[in-house]
Design a protein around this nucleic acid. Structure first.
Lengths: 153, 153
DNA sequence: CGTTTGACCTCAAGCGCTTCAGGTGGGAGA
DNA sequence: TCTCCCACCTGAAGCGCTTGAGGTCAAACG
């Protein structure tokens, strides 16, 4: 997985993908848009070789991406990590704020998901009633669907 | 909001957007990909005029889209509605299955969201500890972050 | 020693929209 | 009547990736 040449470990894109959970295509894409990189290449083959420093950063990015964090927030995260957000200790505050914002974002998404589930459950029930030819059940569900629809933003 | 000419109500794209919750751009896009339409136009201005039949369908699509349903499932939904899924009563079954699949999809998403929230909360706490210079708190949180990370797919 | 395999490369297109740029028709006010 | 504005139009580009086509390099196999 890693090769030691001198003191620097070097990781292939495939391994970097396994480590970070980001697809190889995404790794190339992140490099292209300047979120990571430029990644050094193997002399003869031209293949990417991720060095120890990069590996840790990209592993972290994998986690953040997995939470649905925006590319801009990932950029800020790296900037704060490197101490170029403000200088000094203000960056811990920026980091906290960044994560708190994202917690709120997820929280709101969860709440919206519950509403959506409710709506879809009722729709499933409605068609289930129709499937059985249960006209009465159908009539009971229709107004509930209408109510659930209101919550769907 | 609606104009009566004869017996057909005609709705502008702006109003259709308000009714359905889909943006004007999305309405044009759905037409372009053949999910809806073609929508009749006003003779002189060339503006879209949605007729009563289309209005109901698009309103329904708005709800489905709001739940995150895929374009393909929306296509199937319309097909089953029109009775071209199978013929006869098999379509109620198809509809039920379609909605049940989507309930499961949402359910899984909700579960993943909880894991993500947990991870982000811990990260926020970690940086909060650093912000306060609380090295001890930091040490308590680090292993928890590591554990939460495992769940992130 | 030629060939096959596999990991990797780049470039282009597609997905589901959103946003933007540039243009038209028609009604209202000066 | 002239002009302004508003609602609408089309087409193209952007976002964050994913998928696919077509080509290179190096180690392994017959």
């Amino acid at each position: 997985m890693t090769t030691t040449d001198g003191d620097t470990a070097s990781v292939s894109i495939q391994d970097m993908s396994k480590i970070s959970g980001l697809s190889e295509a995404t790794l190339r894409y992140y490099e292209k848009i300047g979120l990571i990189g430029p990644v050094p290449r193997d002399e003869s083959s031209g293949h990417r070789r991720y060095g120890g420093h990069a590996v840790e950063r990209i592993e972290a990015l994998g986690c953040l991406r997995a939470t649905g964090m925006s590319v801009q927030d990932m950029r800020d995260y790296l900037r704060f990590l490197d101490g170029n957000g403000d200088g000094g200790d203000g960056n811990a505050t920026r980091m906290r704020e960044l994560f708190e914002r994202n917690v709120s974002r997820i929280q709101e998404e969860i709440e919206r998901m519950h509403v959506r589930r409710r709506y879809l459950e009722l729709k499933a029930q409605l068609w289930s009633a129709r499937e059985r030819g249960d006209a009465e059940g159908e009539n009971r569900i229709v107004p509930e669907v209408a109510r659930a629809r209101e919550g769907l933003r």
